[in-house]
Structure formats: C-alpha cells, structure tokens
Design a protein around this nucleic acid. Structure first.
Length: 421
RNA sequence: GUGGGCGUAGCUCAGCUGGUAGAGCACAGGAUUGUGGCUCCUGUGGUCGAGGGUUCGAACCCCUUCGCUCACCCCA
C-alpha cells in the first residue's frame, strides 16, 4: 500500500467544509479591511529564506525541504509566507501601487520536523501583511483584523500576547546584557539553555524548565532595554489596542523564531492546545524588504496556523459550518434516471444541495440512503408519478408526503428546506 | 535530532499459558408486491505492519525493520 508522506495528511469530508468556511471567513473579514489575496509559488529559491528567516534559525538550519532541480538550482518548499510576499513585492514593483499595500494569503507551508499534534510537515497558514506603514496604527489595525477574524469564528478564550523586541541594535545590546546578568548562574541553566547560550540566546527567555524560568525572571526584560523610539512605538500599539477593546497580555519573555521581526511581536495561544502551541504568530519587520534589496518599506503582519485553528474551532462554528440542507432525488425504476438528473440540476441552480440516487436501488433502499446522506427532503420520481407529470415530495424529518406537479417541485422543495432553518 | 507508547477488518477493539482470527460500528442486500429513521436476518471485508528466526505448529516467543502516535527541541 502506498501511504502518505510522513507529516502530511488527508483532510476528508466533512472536515474540508470547516476548512472552506474558515478560509471564506478569512477572505471576507480580511478582505473587508482592504486586504486582497495574493497567490504565490510554493517553490522559491533557497536563498530567499536563508536571507530573510535567518541562517541561525531552526527553520533554515534544519527544517527546510530543500533540493536541487534538474539544472542544479537550489529550491525550497516555502516554510513560511512573509518572505515570499516581500520577494513578490520587490519583483512586481508593488511599491508603485498606492501605499500602504494590504495583502492576504493562505495555503500550505513545509517544514521538515517530527510531526505531532498540531505540527505537521505540510501545514497551512492564513496570513496578512500590511506593507508601507511604519506607524503604531498599522500594527493596531493588523491585530484588530486578527481579533475580528477570530471572534467571527466564535473564539472567546484566545489570548493575544504582545512583546517589544526592539530594533536589531537593541537586541544585540539586550542579549549582551542578558548574558552578563545570567553569567553567575550559567551552570544552573538546563542543558538546552546551555546550548542556546551560543546558538540562540533569546530562546533562553521562554525555556520551560522551572529553574531557568526563575533565573530569567530576575533579568531585565527586553522591553526595558530598547530604544526610546521602539518603546514609544509599542506603547502606542498597546494603547491603540486598548482603545479598540482588544484584550492583550504583555508577555515580556515572548520571543519569535524568525530573525526579521523587530519591535512589535505577538502570538495567539489557545488554552485548549496549551501555551506551547501557538495558533498565530506575527510582528513588525521594517528591514525585511530592504534586506532583500528592495526599498526601505516597513511591514507588519501575522500568520495563523490553519491546522491548529481548525483543531480548536468552537463548537458553535462547527455546527453552523456543518449544517446542511439537502434534498435527495430518488428515481424509482430506470426510466426515471435521466429525469432525476435534470430535476437535480434545476434544484442545484435554485441554490440547494441535491444528491441524486444513481445506483438504481429499491425505493426502500433509496430512502435509507437519503437518510444517511442527511437529506431533509426527498423527491421521489416513480412510475405512476411519471405518467401523471408529478413527483412525490417527502419531508424526511416529519414523515409527511405530498404530490406536487413537476413544475412546482423546485419551489416547494425550497419552501420545505427554508422552514428547516 | 532525542525519548516514551502502539501496530489484528474502513473505524473502535477482543483474541487466556503458542494450535493457521472474532465482536461492535460502518458498508451492501433482505424481513410479501413503491416508502427511511427502531428492530431482526444475511453478506462483503483481514497476506494479524513487513522480513527473518525458534517450533510439528506463531497474531501471540526472539531479532531486525518500517510505520503511526505522544512529549521534548522548535514552531503555525
């Protein structure tokens, strides 16, 4: 048996309905804020991610699906979306469009990690990017849009955590200070943190080991070390969010895994999945486009993990999304088959979902099948009805049945399904 | 990459100290001629993850391997 590649998954109906609804809602809400969808390649030159995400990050150093194409060029299956948006911005001269530019995207990303719940090698993200605005108001808008989207899905228990990473210069200073403060206790840090000391000192901040947490708690938070400008910026973002009634929690130890973030960084975590499993991560990246050789265009955005989001979707949303109003079209006897299909077409065009019985089974089996298909109404096209130019319409929930002229079937079915809501 | 758990029908699982496999659900058909949802009957469906070994004989024991899963690392 051929099996799916590790870390990928088959998303089957009816779960696909959830995904469709989530994506539709994203397009509606983000689109409503002025973000238009951009569709980008899944395949990019490896260098794009090395230069933007950062050579030292886990993503680039060990998690990328990288391979050589037939001409020896190094290509990579995108591990995230923002780098591609930046590349496309430069390549397509999007700086010539009215600024700022608001873009949204969704689709699969790839990271070579060991899979577990909520973490797959192929996973989907939904993101937006606001390019060409450096103001706190831009950050506020992005987070308000995020919150609006999540609220629209029915979430009311999600936590938005916010931190200030300062500018790159601040960060270097901060790391130096952090190390100085921790040096006396360096040997008390856990094994992972010993490693992080050299490789990724910022990560020491969000270590889960109790002793590390205690030690880190004694150190000066990043936000206290950043420049005046950066501090003012994030303070303004916070104030703006407060004014918009967005519940935000300051997270002095919040760190992100991509090098390009600066100043505002934020995450959304779900109590259900636990604090370690981030549903959404984002922040500001004012140097990303210029680092790629473009103009000095600031940006801010986020990416939502769609797999994780769907995993914890509120029941209310699922119920609504999975609610269906279906009519089953049941021809009895082979002669009615074609008639059934064209009746189904009329029903479909009238906006309802019509499942047509095409295996030629008995009426009894047809009705059983209709029930299993979750149909609320069945249209029965039998021999005698054919002769009279009528059809039987059966209300499957109530068990009531009526005879209707063929020409009135669509209207009557619509009525019955309407009453069902 | 590190560590733990698990691999028997589509799904959830049973299978006692080794004697060549079962249930429930699901799926299909039927219970007097054209009427479902309950019930009942019948049927389809498994090289017991794979390979090797021990044995007269292995789903059960041993070795190897692959896969799945959970946690860590990290991240969405």
């Amino acid at each position: 048996m051929i099996r799916k590649v590790k870390g990928t998954r088959d998303i089957l109906p009816p779960e696909t309905t959830l995904w469709n609804d989530v994506e539709r809602t994203a397009l509606r809400i983000f689109g409503g804020f002025g973000y238009s969808e951009i569709r980008l390649p899944l395949l990019e030159p490896t260098e794009l991610f090395v230069r933007t995400v950062g050579e030292g990050t886990d993503i680039v150093s060990k998690e990328m699906y990288t391979f050589a194409d037939r001409k020896g060029r190094s290509l990579t299956l995108r591990p995230e979306g923002t780098a591609s948006v930046a590349r496309a911005f430069i390549e397509n001269g999007l700086g010539q469009r009215p600024q700022p530019l608001r873009l949204s995207y969704f689709g699969p990303m790839f990271r070579y990690e060991k899979a577990q719940r909520g973490r797959y090698r192929q996973f989907s993200q939904i993101g937006i990017e606001l390019l060409g605005a450096a103001t706190p108001a831009a950050d506020v808008e992005v987070i308000v849009a995020l919150h609006t989207f999540l609220a629209e899905l029915g979430f009311d228990d999600l936590i938005i955590a916010l931190n200030n990473l300062g500018d790159p210069e601040d960060r270097e200073r901060f790391i130096a200070g952090l190390k100085t403060e921790l040096t006396p206790h360096r040997d008390e840090l856990c094994g992972d943190c010993q490693r992080r000391w050299e490789e990724n000192p910022l990560r020491i901040l969000d270590c889960k080991v109790q002793r590390c947490r205690e030690l880190v708690a004694e150190t000066t938070p990043v936000a206290d070390v950043v420049s005046e400008d950066a501090a003012r910026h994030v303070a303004a973002v916070e104030a703006g969010l407060q004014e918009a009634s967005i519940p935000v929690r300051r997270a002095p130890r919040l760190v992100r895994g991509l090098d390009y973030y600066l100043r505002t960084v934020f995450e959304v975590i779900s109590p259900e999945l636990g604090e370690d499993t981030v549903i959404c991560g984002g922040g500001r990246y004012d140097r990303l486009i210029s680092d790629l050789g473009g103009a000095a265009v600031p940006g801010v955005g986020f990416a939502i993990g769609e797999d994780r989001l769907v995993d914890v979707l509120p029941q209310s949303f699922k119920d609504r999304a999975l609610e269906q109003r279906i009519v089953a079209v049941l021809p009895v006897g082979g002669a009615a088959a074609a008639q059934a299909t064209s009746l189904a077409r009329d029903l479909v065009l009238s906006g309802v979902t019509a499942h047509t019985e095409v295996t030629g089974r008995s009426l009894k089996a047809c009705l059983k099948w209709a029930t299993k298909m979750a149909a609320s109404v069945a249209v029965i096209l039998g021999e005698s009805e054919r002769a009279d130019g009528v059809a039987l319409i059966r209300d499957l929930d109530r068990g009531e049945q009526e005879t209707v002229a063929l020409g009135d079937v669509v209207a009557r079915v619509a009525e019955l399904l309407q009453a069902r809501r």
